[in-house]
Amino acid sequence: MSQDIGFIQREVLKEKPDPASLGFGKYFTDYMLVMDYDVENGWHAARITPYEPITLDPSAMVFHYGQAIFEGLKAYRTADGTIQMFRPEKNMKRLNDSCDRLCIPQIDEGFLLKAIKQLVLTEKDWVPNEAGTSLYVRPFIFSTEPYLGVRPAQQYKLMVILSPSGAYYGDQLSPVKIYVEEEYVRAVIGGVGHVKTAGNYAASLKAQEIAESKGYAQILWLDAKENKYVEEVGSMNIFFKINGEVVTPKLNGSILPGVTRDSVIQLLAYWGVPVREARISIEEVFEAYERGELEEVFGAGTAAVISPVGELNWNGRIITINDNQIGEISQRLYDEMTAIQLGKKEDPFNWTVKIAQVEV
């Protein structure tokens, strides 16, 4: 892999959006990172180019056989003007785990992180500094070889695009309503549920559409075999605080190993809060509610950071958690995580990676 990163200048820069209107995934910066792969050259031709449409052959294998993976991480601007990222090495490793599962050639994680840092530095003026905002970083890889036949492709493209973003759910800490899905399944053990491949999300859309029509923001998926054990929410890992202990579903091959999930577990252990990874059924959750022991439910993910859950609907049984208010642990986790990400508090875990010091 070449260690040079090319640069193609954009003729006219975009007008930046009003920070109050950012939302999530609506706007994209001036530049993107691109790399190509073929059998002869491996990963090569890394370059930062103007953000623009791409052209693919109609027979490009991604359209027909679905070799497409992605990641999601963020860059933050701190009060002193530092731009930093949160545990990006975990995302690079998970990207390669996804590559392995989908028979995509491995990426040099160190070089890709270096290239992403250079891209973010190029776009430093796009990193917002308003409360609750960040620059979302989306690396993705897809097969480009023009061929019809079921086998791993021999040509790929890696791209990284950037999007200045606000809160994922609007009012970030307002508890969301979640529908427990019983008809459709997200993933099976032995499948691709533990990696970030595009097909996982396509398979979730029908259930998500039904849930939204009933007034619910997200789906809580159950296991595909017995349809009883909790797995994850569509865009987050899930946590339950039951009688003083925080429990999250144990990784089993069909649950995504979230970076924020891992950070939550480490933070809770650091604070001395009992935390456990375990197989937990939806029946156990509702029984804990009936006993008055279900104290909090919250999701954890890169986009939302921490998202409290105020209502669960399972097969018509509706429960309201903590009077539909954010819980103490959820609030503390959100405050601590975002304070570390924004450089407002000491980072005892060395999670943050500084990219540059820029003028405030």
Rank of each mutant, 00 (worst) to 15 (best):
I282K: 01
K225I: 11
K196L: 06
G190D: 05
L267Q: 12
L267C: 07
E209Y: 13
E277D: 02
V247P: 07
E212K: 15
G234I: 02
V176M: 13
S281F: 11
V259H: 04
I265H: 00
G190M: 09
I242Q: 05
W271D: 04
I238W: 01
Q218D: 13
A207E: 07
E183R: 14
E284K: 15
Q218T: 06
T248E: 00
S204T: 12
A269S: 14
A198W: 13
P249H: 05
L220E: 13
L251T: 01
G244M: 12
T248H: 02
E182K: 15
S263R: 00
V192D: 06
R279K: 13
G191S: 11
Y216A: 08
Q208K: 14
K206E: 07
G253V: 09
E277G: 00
I210G: 01
E212S: 06
V185H: 14
V264T: 06
N252L: 08
W271G: 02
Q208E: 13
W221E: 03
Y184S: 08
I178Q: 01
I219C: 10
E284Q: 15
G191Q: 05
I210P: 01
N237F: 00
E284F: 13
S263W: 03
V264R: 03
S235P: 04
K225N: 09
L222P: 03
E231A: 03
A278C: 03
G199T: 07
Y184E: 09
S174R: 15
I238M: 02
E231Y: 05
G191P: 11
V233A: 11
R279L: 09
S213F: 06
T197V: 15
K250Y: 06
G199D: 10
E182C: 09
I238A: 01
Q208A: 13
E226A: 06
N227C: 11
L222G: 03
G193T: 02
G234H: 04
K206M: 13
